[in-house]
Amino acid sequence: MAVVFEKPKSLTDAELHYCPGCTHGIIHRLVAEAIDALGVEGKTIGVAPVGCAVMAYNYFSCDMVEAAHGRAPAVATGLKRSLPENVIFTYQGDGDLASIGMAETVHAATRNENITVIFVNNAIYGMTGGQMAPTSLPGQVTQTSPYGRDIATAGYPVRVSEMLSMLDGPEYIARVAVNNVKNVRNAKKCIEKAFRNQIENKGFSLIEVVSSCPTNWGMTPGKALEWIEENMIPYYPLGVYKDRSAKEEEKA
């Protein structure tokens, strides 16, 4: 009988702790599939964040390092400078990457650090129970914006992909989503490219994955996926924001 679906080798057998309907599971799988497809599990080192994915070190079967909140790009920089032949990736949420770790993110990008960054944007702090994130939408109700995010006092959400694509440093910046099959397929392609870029020494690649948090959004998993389509994607348009090599090829 033909095998039509199996768990990627780069994932362990550990049971995921994520909430039902959470899209972290999908994103973990896409990352693992990319590592499998490129055949680099044995030389890959992942960096886990602080946030819902804090225990990602138990789920990926490659070597893993757990970083302090927001510091994953700095830790990855150390790893890559020490082991330039290895494949180094970080897996970070919006609070980790775009709030407390913004400096580390921007500077790793501007140095064109040859690493792969998986940025999970679900517009909320999940692990601590649903506080406002740097990417929470205007008017979005969270535990710390109970009357809706008021841009007059809490400011605007950060559009990370747009911002980083303004820098000269990074190689590849793309925003994808995992709310339907078509988008998941595209996300898989982009994530694999982000890893391939590193292997080809092209430099800093970041994939922003627009993702859901049914628990803290207070929705059913299905409704959460619709909310991505209706509210998240209009604010965070999908697409490739920067692809230096493609642009250079075009020119040539």
Binding site: I45, V47, V65, A67, A68, R71, A74, V75, A76, T77, G78, L79, K80, R81, S82, L83, A103, E104, V106, H107
Partner: peptide, 25 residues
């Protein structure tokens, strides 16, 4: 490798990264 980090915070975390690989840093 000499790297001027963006902050002390980043610098010590780069140290953490290299040390994780078993090298002196």
């Amino acid at each position: 490798c000499f790297l001027q980090a963006e902050s002390e915070v980043a610098a010590i975390n780069m140290v953490y990264g290299v040390s994780s690989t078993g090298k002196r840093v």
